[in-house]
Amino acid sequence: MPIFDWLMRLVGDDYLIFTIMALILISLWVGFRSASQRELNQRTVLCAAFGVGLACAAIHLFMAFGPDRLRPSDAYPALVNLLAYGRGDPSFPSESVAVAFAFATGVWLSKRGGLGAVMLLMAALLAFARVYVGVHYPLDVVAGAAIGILSSLAAQGLLRLFEPVPTWLLKGMRRIYLA
C-alpha cells in the first residue's frame, strides 16, 4: 500500500505532528473570549511546554545512562523494511513520542479535555507511524508515551507547588502585552 506507506512516513516524520501541536498551543495562548478562559488557556500552555521540557530532559538522561538499543533497521536489516531514513541515536525510548504525549497530556490535564483528546489521538498516531516506518520497536514508543505522560503530570504538580511563579510569569508577560 504505497499511499498508506507515504501517509505513515508523513505522520511519523520529525516535523508534522509537533508543528501542528505547537500551533495549537499558540492559538490557545493568544485566543480567548474572557479573562477566565485566558487564564486557563495560558496555564495550559505553560503546563504543556514545561512537560515537554521535562520529557526531553528525562529522555536525554535515559539515553546518556541507559542501554544503547540499536534501531530495528540496524539490528534486523534483513527483516525490517525501513520506510524512512535511519537514525544513529539509541532507539529506546522514543523521544519524539515522549514529546508528543507530553504536549497532549498537558492540554488534556487542563479543562480543555476535548482538544487534549484530539492531541492524544495525534500522539498515538505518531507512535504507530514511528513503529510502522521501522525507526522504533513498539516498546520504545510505549516507554516514550509513558515518559511524556509522567512528565506532564510532574509539570502540573510542580507548577502547583511553585504557585506564585507561574502567576508572576503571566503577570510579567501581560505587562508587555504578550499574554
Binding site: D13, D14, Y15, L82, A84, Y85, G86, R87, G88, D89
Partner: peptide
C-alpha cells in the same frame, strides 16, 4: 521536501 532520500540521517546534536 524535508525528507532526504538517504539511508541514514543525522542531526548536529548527533
Amino acid at each position: 521536501n524535508p525528507h532526504p532520500e538517504v539511508a541514514y540521517a543525522i542531526t548536529f546534536g548527533d
